[in-house]
């Protein structure tokens, strides 16, 4: 009784904050952009170390295994880039829809890029 029908993308603007209903906080924008960049970086790093043995050997030398170095590097890139991009926004909010699209495109392209690379090499 009296329960309004809701759809995920058709809700009223956020009345509590008075902001646009598609805006996300500076930290979500900063770390979200960092995540999208890191996904692509991860694939490029995988290509680079698979194609160039000296890089693979160097990464293995750093921690004992190239995969450990790869994972730590990815997490570090995400955290540092996220902090820097958030700080650079100075509290300015961003568009969540655009960020979501960027994450999906980068996520799918990065995954497909990995599969395709190891299929052809």
């Amino acid at each position: 009784m009296g329960t309004a029908q809701r759809t995920p993308f058709a809700m009223a603007p956020d009345s509590a904050t008075g902001t646009s209903d598609t805006s996300v906080s500076a930290s979500v924008c900063g770390f979200g952009t960092a995540a999208a960049i890191t996904l692509v970086f991860n694939t490029v790093l995988a290509w680079a170390k698979d194609a160039w043995d000296p890089l693979n050997n160097f990464m293995a030398h750093l921690t004992g295994h190239h995969w450990i170095t790869h994972g730590i590097t990815d997490v570090a890139v995400f955290l540092v880039l996220g902090y820097v991009l958030t700080a650079r926004r100075g509290g300015q909010r961003g568009n969540g829809i655009r960020l979501a699209i960027a994450l999906v495109v980068c996520g799918l392209a990065a995954g497909a890029g990995l599969g395709f690379w190891f299929l052809i090499t």
């Binding site: 995920p8 956020d14 509590a16 598609t22 979200g32 995400f78």
Partner: peptide
């Protein structure tokens, strides 16, 4: 997964951008 809690801490009700992320 490291980013998800950062995104989920927002107020999602009434914000379709936050929900999309």
């Amino acid at each position: 997964a490291l980013f998800l809690p950062i995104a989920a801490v927002q107020r999602l009700a009434g914000n379709q951008g936050a929900r999309a992320v």
